[in-house]
Design a protein around this nucleic acid. Structure first.
Lengths: 80, 80, 80, 80
DNA sequence: TCTTATTGTCCTCGAC
DNA sequence: GTCGAGGACAATAAGA
């Protein structure tokens, strides 16, 4: 079997990389949950906190989008 | 068969209502496409236009979200 | 500013038309959601309903395809 | 302002911790996407790959469940 | 074709 | 423990 399973091996490696990343991702998601729990234990309202996080994310996205649009304009006008 | 198919009839009515709405929705989506096509025919870059529409939508969402959050704060503080 | 902003004005009009249409579309999407919610409140399983709607749409699509094909044949044969 | 904003500061810290974690999470999600893209560039079908990953996750879950059940039995029987 | 945008489904989470 | 909302993910459709 010294040959022919190259493709299978490569696939397996891809799969394993993905699984490792997914695990990391899950770990971080758990960390996020912990922070909310800790905040709640300190008397904060998690619903409001989630709203704040959501708002800030939206604002950041809008800003990024605006920057990209401005860049598009610049290019269209041949500036910089 | 004057009886017993009440449920089936009701389900059919729900399905038909949904299908009617979906058709309307599709019609509007087609209208949007037409507007983009018309704009393109007038020399506008549709990709940029889509970016503008997206940006304005994001900004509006952020604004709405901010308003809702402010309202939450107001209530929490017993104001108004 | 009686001049030169014609293009900008026209663009703005296009954008506004699109945004208006998008809003209508969203309104209809909300209506659809309401119908599903109402059906659920009447004891129907929305997942199944969605499957039905999807199936009927596919069938309609298949029928339309068949009609188009038939039309193609007709034309190829010089029949009305 | 040496006083009274303790709560606000603490809240801000919680929010920032969450945002930092969310960013990390997004970074990893992007990494996953990259791996899929790389696999695709090597001739693999990503849809199939996703199915494999999903299946293995389910199998792991099933195994964990079985282990937990076994543990429950052990405890019920007073075995180490 | 190949990417990007939208849509739909699933699943988690907090509230009641 | 059920419900509804929200977010994440996957599938499909559209556009370049």
């Amino acid at each position: 079997m010294s040959e022919g399973n190259v493709a299978a091996d490569q696939l397996r490696l891809f799969i394993e990389r993905i699984e490792r990343l997914e695990e990391e991702k899950k770990g971080i998601a758990d960390d996020v949950k912990d922070v909310y729990a800790e905040a709640k234990a300190n008397g904060y309202d998690t619903k409001t906190m989630r709203a704040i996080v959501r708002l800030r994310r939206m604002e950041k996205h809008a800003r990024d989008e605006a920057d990209a649009l401005l860049e598009t304009y610049r290019n269209a006008l041949g500036l910089a």
